[in-house]
Design a protein around this nucleic acid. Structure first.
Length: 472
RNA sequence: GGCGCUGUGGCCAAGUGGUUUAAGGCGAAGCUCUGCAAAAGCUUUAUUCGUCGGUUCGAAUCCGACCGGCGCCUCCA
């Protein structure tokens, strides 16, 4: 039984899908005017892990992530660069998909874009207008927040407090400062779409309402996004969708915590961010994913390179065991003893952890415990049969690789080194072996040192010498 | 000002009433292996959970006060 902390109720609730085994899930995606940063990728990765775990648990997930391809920032960039907005949006949407793939994030079933959903959006606004929840001021259409009695139910705010807090810019067209745009009248030179209110484009919140319902229905299971979207974005989505459709909108709201740098939220406006693209040049997807999985998705998380390096070091424990497994399978199947290891216990522990509001740090701990115990057994026994290794591989493939995405059994250590280079290294290793046998340690050490200088680290073990490519 | 989150070992971070005198990772120390080294593996590493009170047979976990950090209330994952 999976439990999920629901922002709406502020409680952990048992997860009951509307139409099992189907689960409909919507995650707020990027606005494509720039590269996304590593903080954004935390949300995308944690949402991906949640999706994978639901699938692991037997659910059939329909996963939808919007790509916002029209907004103020895209327009601003298109003016700056003197390119059509569509070109900017397509360019960065492309980067987004590329980087997501590099982060081993499973593709969404649908990536809806507002510019392709204008009819749904306009119909939704019309519905709100007919129900008198929207008003038109000279081609700008606003949502009348005072009409929606439940406004604030997600964020725990109430309208009076919000008004008295009033950091909101005064807009003379609005009846109430909290009212928000549904349809924005096009200014001179801006891209526009035709509508009953004249030429313009949709407001930000309305697109998510329209697109999520278009693909997942008026009432669906899970809606996730960053903490900063709770208010006003998700609050407004509820106000729009529930009024327009007359149905309860989303059953479970999940929100992701921020990355903290030097005690501050990582954000575009503060400029204290690293793009996912740049981080990926230094750290593997597995390292980044492990780093995120080591903290619960909902809380804030400190970020700096030392911490990523710590995760990278930790990951080596997993890849070392993986290497042992790969070596085992590269030779013939072997008979031998089948040591005792309670695979089911680890599996159960993993599930228990993940069932509890996707407690990935606990799940990671189970993986590390498992690896430690497996290593111990491998170290203590010489004649282990192949089946044992296959069980180990199977466990890690379903959990560490399949759910968390912190291992990759399809990846080989040598990377894309040419065959000739590999043979050359093997040759040097052989020469060094000979030197060692002749006790010419000076030569043996020289070979090792010089290879190290060019980034190839030799490691002697009992019966053979292996090598590793060192990044730095 | 309103709402919300948060304070656990040198660092990161789970745990939210007894099975925990607190998981896991990094770091550190020791050991094994080794010509040496590296790598790897193993072992050890918090009587203590921001402070002070209270509730309880029992609290990191519940309550109160206080101190500190962060976020949202404006675009933001």
């Amino acid at each position: 039984m999976i439990k999920i902390y629901n922002t709406l109720s502020k409680k952990k609730e048992e997860f009951k899908p509307i139409n099992p085994p189907n689960v409909n899930m919507y995650v707020c995606g990027p606005t494509v005017y720039d590269f996304f940063h590593i903080g954004n990728s935390r949300s995308f990765i944690m949402a991906d892990i949640i999706r994978r775990y639901l699938e692991y648990s037997g659910y059939k997930v329909k996963y939808v992530m919007n790509i916002t391809d029209i907004d103020d920032k895209i327009i601003r960039k298109s003016i700056e660069q003197n390119k059509p907005f569509k070109e900017i949006a397509d360019e960065y949407a492309g980067y987004f998909l590329e980087d997501s793939k590099k982060l081993k994030i499973k593709e969404a079933d649908v990536f809806p874009r507002p510019t392709e959903h204008m009819n749904s959006i306009i119909n939704l606004i019309k519905e709100l207008e007919e129900k008198s929840f929207a008003y038109n001021v000279d081609g700008n259409v606003f949502y009348d927040v005072s009409k929606f009695k439940e406004y604030g139910k997600l964020s725990g705010k109430n309208i009076e407090d919000l008004i008295s807090g009033a950091r909101i810019e005064i807009n003379k067209d609005k009846k109430n400062p909290l009212d928000f745009s549904l349809w924005k009248k096009a200014k001179e030179g801006e891209p526009y779409w035709e509508s009953p209110w004249g030429n313009g484009r949709p407001g930000w919140h309305v697109e998510c309402s329209a697109m999520s319902c278009a693909h997942l229905g008026n009432n669906f299971d899970i809606h996730a996004g960053g903490n900063d979207l709770i208010f006003p974005h998700h609050e407004n989505e509820i106000a729009q969708s529930e009024v327009a459709n007359g149905e309860h909108f989303v059953n479970y709201w999940l929100h992701f915590g921020f990355l903290i740098i030097n005690n501050q939220k990582m954000s575009k406006s503060l400029g204290n961010f690293f793009t996912a693209r740049d981080i990926l040049k230094i750290y593997s997807a597995e390292t980044i994913r492990l780093f995120f999985a080591q903290a619960h998705y909902s809380g804030p998380l400190n970020f700096n390179e030392e911490l990523l390096t710590a995760s990278q070091k930790g990951l080596e424990k997993l890849t070392n065991l993986q290497k042992k497994i790969d070596d085992e399978f590269s030779s013939e199947t072997r008979d031998g003893i089948m040591p005792k290891l309670d695979f089911n216990k680890y599996k159960t522990d993993f599930q228990t952890a993940m069932n509890d509001d996707f407690n990935t740090p606990q799940a990671v701990a189970v993986i590390f415990d498992f690896v430690k115990d497996a290593n111990k057994i491998i170290g203590e026994n010489t004649n282990i049969n192949s089946e044992f290794y296959s069980e180990i591989k199977n466990f890690l493939q379903t959990t560490a690789e399949g759910v968390l995405g912190i291992m990759d059994f399809t990846q080989k250590e040598e990377g894309d080194m040419a065959t000739k280079e590999k043979e050359l290294i093997e040759l040097l290793i052989k020469l060094r072996q000979n030197a060692k046998m002749e006790k010419n340690y000076a030569l043996a050490d020289k070979i090792r040192d010089e290879l190290k200088d060019i980034g190839i680290a030799l490691e002697d073990s009992k019966d053979k010498t292996t090598y590793k490519l060192k990044v730095n």
